[in-house]
């Protein structure tokens, strides 16, 4: 194997590793938002490494240009797709997982947020999206 082959193999192995990390994260993490973190970052990095490894393996040719095109496209669209999905989920009030150690602190913070939202509503203005979401999650 030439030196370029070794570099390509290194990139391919790195890409495979990060794709495994992404899949494990998607399966094991506790709620939607942490799963979107796994897919948005790890999957993107794994894809980029894998496509770069293929392009290096292929050498200087038209196929490499297409691979670079796919690489740029995935680098731009994969995180933004996950972002759009996460924003929709936040607005629709998907429950947020909180670490058990942090529950009292989170409840206190949410209670004060709910208080603020109630005061705001009493003052005749509409609460923001964020306040509504907090309100909904924390109801026992």
């Amino acid at each position: 194997m030439s030196a370029l082959d070794w570099v390509s193999a290194f990139f391919l192995a790195g890409g495979a590793f990060f794709l495994v990390v992404s899949t494990v994260g998607l399966l094991r993490l506790p709620d939607f938002f942490s799963r979107s973190h796994a897919v948005g970052k790890s999957e993107t990095l794994g894809s980029l490494l894998l496509l770069a490894g293929l392009a290096i393996q292929n050498g200087f040719a038209l196929e490499s240009a297409k691979l670079v095109l796919i690489l740029i496209f995935i680098a731009a669209t994969n995180p933004s797709g996950v972002h759009v999905l996460s924003r929709a989920a936040l607005r629709k009030g998907v429950p947020v997982w909180i670490h058990p150690d942090d529950v009292p602190e989170a409840e206190r913070r949410a209670a004060s947020a709910a208080e603020a939202a109630r005061a705001e509503r009493a003052a005749g203005t509409h609460g923001t999206d964020g306040a509504d979401v907090t309100n909904r999650e924390v109801a026992p």
Partner: peptide
Amino acid sequence: LGQAAPLRGERD
């Protein structure tokens, strides 16, 4: 939307 992901985590 489901309430399946519990607020209080799994250990609780």
